[in-house]
Amino acid sequence: MSETILSVKNLNVQFITKRGIIKAVQDVSYSLEKGEAVGIVGESGCGKSVSVLSLLRLLPENLARIKSDEIRFCDTDLLHIANKDMQNIRGSKISIIFQDPMASLNPVLTIGRQLREPLIIHRMAKAKEANNKALELLRMVQIPDPEERMNNYPYEMSGGMRQRVMIAMSLICNPELLIADEPTTALDVTVQAQIIDLVKELRRRLGMSLIWISHDLGIIAGLVNRVLVMYAGTIVEEALVDDLFYTPRHPYTRALLASIPQAEGQLKRKLQPIRGSPPDLLNLPRGCLFAERCNYVKDVCRKEKPPIRRINDNHRCACWMDTTTSEVL
């Protein structure tokens, strides 16, 4: 039996703004087994990143209010540990790769300096040793001329290169959990594929657990074991990757799958967009948050929020309907 590396129960994140309270994440629960790869999917602003960044207290403290029943990483209670202990976990046990490699590296420090930094901060190596480790990682992420690149500044590198550096930096302390927050969104398609292959390969070699956040189901498919689908700050469906693609339950998941453009196939069907737009997080509707855009909508959907129901051991869905039969459950 595998052990649980991360467990989050009823996570709520709110942002206090001048216009009101934004409920960015509501009652999100998930867990991750050791060595497992989980994808979190949803459109922009659905709370994918927030639900993960909040675990590490990386959201602006004065704006974000985090409440949860439990956030547990291995044996550590992330919800209640001191900031100092949190700093020790960040970068060494849990690492993050961010969305925008062009802006995520410090422009006035060399690549080498930034790569060594996690090892130095966490006192895992002395300068010389850190340097060798940095070189090793640069080779691992397939950057040519690593010795020379160490003295480069970020502006001397392309986006794909910088993202490789970010990956190297996040892996340098051998983390147990790697969080990839849309790491390929800012990159062009070929580079995107290279980065995905790279992460897959590194994961196979190093065996860390992975949370991959994306708005693209297609990317997730080949990369993770399990997928969480988020909509307007809540988890609407959770399933093993194959189940999700072959037997999607939630109308939103179905709509997402239908809206993936297909290059091949005889049908030449039209792209099916999801009509409408997500609800205003400042002013959420009463019932199901997806009701306004849903093709299966019934009266109950507008009155009461659907609970998350278990379909089988690995499949959960938050909908009043059985979309396979179009009947209210």
């Binding site: 990386l58 060494s92 690492s95 995520s104 901060i121």
Partner: peptide, 24 residues
Amino acid sequence: KYIVTARAIGTKELRVLYLHVLKN
């Protein structure tokens, strides 16, 4: 964003200030 990166790798606040913020 690189300030978030600095925090994400576990940099202490004081070090974030002098190494990342002030230098820029």
